[in-house]
Amino acid sequence: MERWMPLFGDPARELVVDREDVRLTDRRERGLHNEFGPHFDESTLGRFIEGFLEPSGLLDADRVPAGLRLGNDGVVVNVRRGDYVTNESNWRNYGFDVHDYLRVALDRSVAVGGPIRRILVVSDGIEWCKAELGWLSRRCEVLDFEDTGRPPEVHLAVLSHASRLVLTNSTFSYWGGYLSAWRSGRPEQVVAPWFHIRTDLGGAAWQLDPRWSVVEDIPTQWRLPDPQ
């Protein structure tokens, strides 16, 4: 949290509890309370974005470099790597065939948003994406990879200002989807996988906005591929 607190500003301090303020006898409640519907909804998100995120300036349009701004014929693809693949337990829980999913997801994006001129890949494992996802160039006129080493807050701003998104199964992606849908008013332009993690709800993601374009299945049926 310390990495993000200065970015959100002083109001963020009211939303967190410092470790030294937690007493031994305090009650702990397990759970993330992040299920769309029971725990929050479109209205809740709107109030949080307008009352907390927007005033922080973190999502200002000028945080998005000119070269990373896409029009309505552009799609931002956010691929989660990091400890999803470097940690063996995480890989077993979260891994699926990204190539398989992206083929289906891009078809869905075209179906709901029309032809794709440009694809911009944003990832915490961009070198893998550059090595493995070059085939995306066959799905657009221009393929770009955000490989300039910009920090995650810039990537979040890029996702939030994209009118069309293809997400993977991470909370960073989901927040990009929430913010993009709120800003554009076109939630169906957010394409997300049905799958989140193997250990809960049979794999089904509970964070998804039902207004998104959810990819229910892929040819490999969300099976764990060989390590990538």
Rank of each mutant, 00 (worst) to 15 (best):
Cys140Ser: 03
Asp124Leu: 10
Ser184Gln: 03
Gly185Ala: 01
Phe172Pro: 02
Ser123Phe: 01
Trp222Gln: 12
Ser173Gly: 13
Pro193Ser: 05
Pro225Val: 10
Asp26Thr: 08
Val16Gln: 03
Ile49Met: 14
Asp41Glu: 07
Trp175Tyr: 00
Trp91Val: 11
Thr44Ala: 09
Gly74Phe: 09
Asp26Met: 04
Glu127Ala: 15
Lys130Gln: 13
Ser43Leu: 10
Gly82Lys: 12
Leu165Phe: 04
Arg47Asp: 14
Thr168Phe: 05
Arg108Asn: 03
Leu68Pro: 05
Phe36Cys: 06
Pro151Ile: 00
Val142Asp: 02
Asn34Glu: 10
Arg117Gln: 12
Arg92Ser: 12
Gly9Ser: 05
Arg139Phe: 03
Gly149Cys: 00
Leu7Arg: 15
Asp26Trp: 08
Asp60Ile: 09
His33Gln: 10
Pro152Ser: 12
Glu146Asn: 12
His99Met: 05
Glu141Thr: 01
Leu120Glu: 11
Gly113Val: 10
Leu120Cys: 12
Leu32Gly: 09
His33Ser: 07
Gly176Leu: 01
Phe96Arg: 13
Gly31Lys: 07
Arg117His: 10
Arg63Met: 07
Ile197Tyr: 07
Pro55Asp: 06
Leu70Asn: 15
His155Ser: 08
Val121Glu: 11
Ala131Phe: 06
Glu35Pro: 11
Asn90Asp: 08
Ala181Val: 04
Pro6Met: 10
Asp100Ile: 12
Arg19Met: 11
Gly57Pro: 09
Gly134Arg: 04
Pro187Arg: 02
His33Phe: 14
Arg183Cys: 04
Leu224His: 08
Glu54Asp: 14
His99Tyr: 09
Val16Pro: 07
Gly125Val: 02
Trp128Ala: 01
